[in-house]
């Protein structure tokens, strides 16, 4: 199929076809989530669940790929579905317009092969890690703050976020720095590359280690936790 021709040298035909059978849940459809959904969809992941309670507002336009001047006020999760209908109609997108919380988390995540953490606060991320472990689902964590970002791949039992958010820190430096256009795209790209490897069961993962990204000095550190 022409659509996936350029995937074929890095993925086998069989792997390409397998991607259609996977179901991935993207929790958060903002800066990270928008790019993640775009890339998962173009790869040909068959089923994407997009979760976000919010609608687009003007301050999202600097970085959130799903936002534009014509869809301000529209729900992000619904815009993800609309976008994918024009990019890759083969992909089924389920939109869930709801706050992701400990009451609905299990119901939302159940049945997925993989979960992408594209949330915007630390407390919800730690809760997401707990539920993914309970449901035995791999989790790809990504977070951004200004020039900085981080990615790690968490398999059930790893609990890597407990190391990354030590001292139960509540407030990330993004509250002071904001987020520009480029760190969401960068971190989302690395998250999707990890997602693809977990789904296909090959390649080296950022497991039990975090890739800490500093685009201000272009320093990229892998910090290992064992």
């Amino acid at each position: 199929m022409g659509r996936y021709d350029r995937n074929m040298n890095m993925l086998s035909k069989e792997e390409n076809e397998r991607l259609r059978s996977f179901k991935v849940c993207v929790v958060g459809c903002g800066g990270l989530g928008g790019y993640v959904i775009e890339m998962l969809g173009r790869l040909g992941i068959g089923h994407i669940t997009a979760v976000d309670k919010d609608a687009f507002e003007e301050s999202n336009l600097n970085r959130q790929i799903l936002s534009n001047v014509n869809n301000l006020g529209q729900y992000k999760a619904l815009e993800a579905k609309r976008r994918m209908e024009t990019v890759n109609p083969d992909v089924v997108v389920d939109s869930i317009i709801a706050e992701f919380n400990d009451k609905n988390a299990e119901g939302i995540l159940k049945g997925h092969n993989l979960v992408i953490d594209a949330l915007d606060n630390i407390q919800s991320r730690l809760m997401l890690q707990d539920i993914c472990e309970k449901l035995n689902i791999p989790l790809i964590h990504g977070a951004i703050a200004g020039w900085y970002g981080q990615v790690t791949t968490i398999l059930p039992g790893d609990r890597t976020l407990n190391y990354i958010y030590k001292n139960k820190v509540q407030r990330g430096i993004e509250k002071d720095l904001g987020n520009p256009s480029f760190t969401p795209a960068l971190v989302a790209s690395i998250q999707v590359s990890e997602a693809l490897k977990v789904l296909l069961g090959r390649g080296d993962l950022l497991r039990k280690e975090v890739l800490y990204i500093d685009t201000y000095t272009q320093e990229y550190h892998k910090v290992r936790f064992d």
């Binding site: 594209a118 915007d120 703050a145 990354i164 407030r171």
Partner: peptide, 10 residues
């Protein structure tokens, strides 16, 4: 010693 601040945005 290495010290990293929390990154939590999305």
């Amino acid at each position: 010693i290495s010290l990293f601040p929390p990154v939590g945005g999305g």
